[in-house]
Amino acid sequence: MALLEVKDLKVRVEEREILHGLTLTVNEGEVHAIMGPNGSGKSTLSHVIAGKPGYEVTDGQILFRGEDLLEMDPDERAAKGVFLAFQYPVEIPGVTTMNFLRTALNAQRKARGESELMVPDFLKKVREVSKSLNIPQDMLKRGVNVGFSGGEKKRNEVLQMALFEPSLCILDEMDSGLDIDALRIAADGVNALRSPGRAMVVITHYQRLLNYIVPDVVHVMSRGRVVKSGGKELALELEASGYAQFEDAA
């Protein structure tokens, strides 16, 4: 069974159709890249998979391990193992990162019928992961993302990914706003999480990110559909020839 199956998905936002019948299948262990010009519906797809309100699914299905994802609340999806790394992670003043991480992890465990992680085990794990991501301990005591740089915010997303151990990670424009060093640290963090049981969907506008996170499959999205799929070489092709050819095709 595929991990994620998106079948003929049609999505509207305020009366305007953004996705016009999108189909995508992702198996365990695979890394898929979704590339496309601005406005092609890449972020809409990621939001609909995560369950963000404001999107109306008019047709099609999203199955996660064969279960209907669209019937679940966002928190249920998270507990099942769906993780969206936000393009713009929000700032939450007054909620320390540490408190947030523990509350979220325990909420997911509770929903899965698992016991709460003991504090010492949790702290040990956070320390290990944050060290590997070059996240200073004092950042964890601050409000979630408050005063964080663009790179720090993205690393904080990767930190959560490492802690929550989701089986599907969707990275929405992880490279936006990052310089090359920040990008490398974040990408190294993501690569460390690649495993046979985990799939990733990397959404990006530029080929650059895919030099660091090398995909198994590349999809080109245009005007709300996947218009072409291929191997990693497709990304390089796009870099050379641009998206224009696909805009015509769509």
Binding site: A50, D75, R77, A78, P89, A107, A111
Partner: peptide, 16 residues
């Protein structure tokens, strides 16, 4: 709403 969605996407039920 954007903060609420972020927390829900991390596994917190609405009320929490």
């Amino acid at each position: 709403d954007s903060l609420l969605f972020y927390l829900k996407a991390r596994g917190l039920p609405e009320k929490q």
